[in-house]
Design a binder for these strands. Structure first.
Lengths: 175, 175
DNA sequence: TATTGTTATACTCTATAACTATA
DNA sequence: TATAGTTATAGAGTATAACAATA
């Protein structure tokens, strides 16, 4: 895929020299996404860093269970883009902290139904509004006219990247 | 965008007991950014995974030097959002591979001017177009009418997240 | 004393595979 | 044989601080 031709820009290039399409890191989309996601994660960590200290996988499990109420580990992984080993370990940690509980599925003993304990729901009820407020603070920085486009763009980029990414027909989600 | 009241579930639902929390992971901006950035990075890795195998810090140093020609490690870190230790190690690896060379600054012997070797420029000249083509493939997935908004939104989000993130008045950039 | 850059250390994550128990 | 989930292992990546050399 070492394409050279510059056919990927349908709209007219404002640049005077069409031949010289320079790679500028600060304009390079993967870099910008990485920096943005990293800073956002770092800032978000403050929301649940003081009282509780959750890893990102734990946070995702907590939120997913808070959202859906009860589901299997596999379903959690599918919904939160996490490999089954990540889910397994995150669930184990949350169980140890009495925030998640499991109930065997008598129809299929390989899996179990996971859900938040009352304590888990308390934590979720405390963190979810804070997380939403945080996302609101972020979104407030974006011009309201640009928000629908951002939403669409993120969806398309994720789809496309998933197509281009390696091993996506695997057992579970990724990384 | 902190959606509040959510009365869309009149029927008895077993799950969310506390305040009607409308936190949906799949709509949560930090999560979406994380997933998008992760998949994009994974896909991008294919661009420089076969021949050369660069870590992300190495890739950033290479691109930054390719873009600016010659600069100090500190300047590289500032431009590519990397801590000095990351830059130091990435540069050391690239030097070992004869892709980067250093020249002492006789006006200040603490620092050195780094630049790509001819071999480094060859690699850059090979990878940069591939990277641009990759970014083009990504961008092609986004409706062209949405691209300027995406650009603005990413800038604003990064700014805001940097404000909200911890310890950003530090010595250097972050992670 | 402050700054550039390097190194050491410990720690967190992660991927991968191997394994279990069920189906 | 296939699937849900767990555990083992090893490797990569990271942050932090301590350090050396120079200013």
């Amino acid at each position: 895929m070492t394409g050279h031709r510059n056919e990927t820009h349908p709209e007219a290039t404002p640049a005077p020299a069409p031949a010289d399409v320079a790679l500028k890191l600060e304009e390079f989309l993967p870099y910008r996404l990485n920096v943005a996601a990293g800073l956002v994660s770092q800032a978000l960590a403050l929301v649940y860093a003081d009282r509780h200290r959750f890893s990102l996988p734990e946070w995702r499990v907590l939120v997913t269970l808070g959202q859906f109420g009860m589901m299997t580990a596999k379903a959690i992984g599918a919904h939160s883009h996490m490999h089954k080993t990540k889910v397994s370990r995150a669930v184990a940690l949350l169980e140890r902290r009495k925030l998640v509980t499991r109930r065997a599925n008598r129809a299929d003993l390989r899996e179990a139904f996971l859900s938040l304990t009352p304590a888990g729901r308390d934590v979720y009820g405390e963190l979810a509004p804070a997380a939403l407020a945080f996302a609101g603070q972020l979104m407030d920085a974006v011009d309201s006219a640009d928000r629908p486009a951002l939403d669409r763009a993120l969806t398309r980029l994720t789809e496309r990247a998933a197509q281009l990414a390696p091993e996506f027909a695997n057992t579970n989600g990724d990384r």
